[in-house]
């Protein structure tokens, strides 16, 4: 219980809440690196994921990329980039973006691929143009998996941003590595707790976003809101893309 008291007193110390090393500044730093990296990841991955999902061309690339990048140690990517580009914002953000791309790409790709082919066929059949098929039908139906990819990517980036402090950088990870250097375990633990809290908070916010932007029609089949008459052979076979692995496994998620 000693560590608990030490943690409480660490958090109670006003010195830890102000100045350039204080929690608010570290939070902003952490959010800044993560947000920037996520944004870059989205700009790169979303168009490619949607295009490959829609046309079906280049699927092998996505699956291969997602699997290959999962094996890549994030610490190695980070250190190599910093080593060759020098310590600074750009190499760190690039490293974080590289880690954000696989889950985003896989989420977008799998999301589009998993839309019931009958629904896409119907969309074309009623006279939608390819763009309308993609944006009015495929995209809204793919949102759950796309946002799932976004959640995975966000967590991955927040976790790795903490690790990035190892190469002398801001963010909550700073507390962990400063604490490690001077054998100050409470500071390390406080840093770790802050990272965990941030990860959980972001996860919660994104879950709320998901609830508000995904059509209730895609949730209704979950069971609770299903009408009692709906159980008669109503649901068509779920769409199976050629690759049977569900999104999270494709997404290269790791903590």
């Amino acid at each position: 219980m000693n560590i608990l008291n030490q943690l409480v007193s660490w958090f109670a110390d006003p010195a830890h809440w102000s100045g350039s090393g204080g929690v608010p500044i570290r939070l902003l730093e952490h959010l800044y690196y993560s947000g920037l990296a996520l944004l870059i990841g989205l700009v790169v991955a979303l168009p490619i994921g949607l295009a490959v999902g829609h046309t079906g061309k280049g699927s092998f690339l996505i699956v291969g990329l997602a699997n290959g990048l999962r094996a890549l140690p994030e610490l190695g990517v980070l250190i190599l980039l910093v080593l060759f580009m020098g310590i600074g914002l750009i190499p760190v953000v690039i490293a974080l973006s590289i880690l954000a791309i696989p889950p985003l790409l896989a989420g977008a790709y799998a999301g589009i691929r998993n839309v019931d082919p009958a629904v896409v066929d119907a969309a074309r059949g009623v006279g939608m143009r390819e763009q309308q098929v993609l944006f009015k039908v495929e995209l809204p139906n793919a949102l759950p998996l796309i946002l799932g990819g976004l959640r995975s990517a966000a967590l991955q980036v927040i976790a790795t941003a903490a690790v990035a402090s190892f190469v002398s950088f801001g963010g909550f990870g700073r507390y962990i590595f400063d604490g490690l250097r001077i054998r100050d375990y409470p500071q390390m633990a406080a840093g770790a707790l802050l990272v965990a809290a941030l990860a959980l908070a972001v996860e919660g916010v994104l879950a709320l976003v998901q609830r508000s932007v995904v059509s209730p029609g895609l949730r209704a089949s979950g069971g609770a809101r299903r009408s009692p008459t709906a159980d008669v052979a109503s649901t068509p076979e779920p769409a199976q893309p050629d690759d049977p692995s569900p999104a999270p496994e494709l997404a290269g998620v790791k903590r």
Partner: peptide, 23 residues
């Protein structure tokens, strides 16, 4: 799912405090 949202560095750092192991 909740456990999975916790970054690995967090667990690596917190476990010694919880288990009493060396860092």
């Amino acid at each position: 799912g909740l456990l999975y949202t916790i970054p690995s560095i967090v667990l690596f750092v917190m476990l010694p405090g919880v288990l009493g192991t060396r860092i």
